[in-house]
Amino acid sequence: MSQGSDIIRILIAKVGLDGHDRGVKIVARTLRDSGMDVIYTGLHRTPEEVVRAAIQEDVDVIGVSILSGAHMTIFPRILELLKENKADDIIVTGGGVIPDEEVDALTKIGVKAILLQDTPPQTIVETIQRLVTERGPR
């Protein structure tokens, strides 16, 4: 039985005090339409909740949408929790409104891709697929 062995699982989350979810829903829908299993957590999650959910769901990728400006707090915390739980093979990506110099800082600490608001949907899909392929089986 070979069906379904290569379906990418991705957890899409809104973290912190940020109620703007139109963008994240478009991203979730786009990923669904590319054939992925998309676990959507809803609004106002904590980094702890996101990491626990990601481990239980055994996702390949976490995608965090942040438009509140709290990204320099939230991304490091998520990366730290993943490491603590020996789950740092989960790829962390993000999107939203983030200044260029902080995109660089986040990439340096281990966020694999930051896809800002002008990213075409197809680029999002291809980036996720590329990152999972590069990581390889686990």
């Binding site: 590319s34 054939g35 299993d37 998309v38 676990i39 959507y40």
Partner: peptide
């Protein structure tokens, strides 16, 4: 049924 993808949203209500 078209793309094979899915939105799994049940966790939202169990947070």
């Amino acid at each position: 049924p078209y793309s094979g993808g899915a939105i799994l949203g049940d966790r939202i209500r169990m947070s």
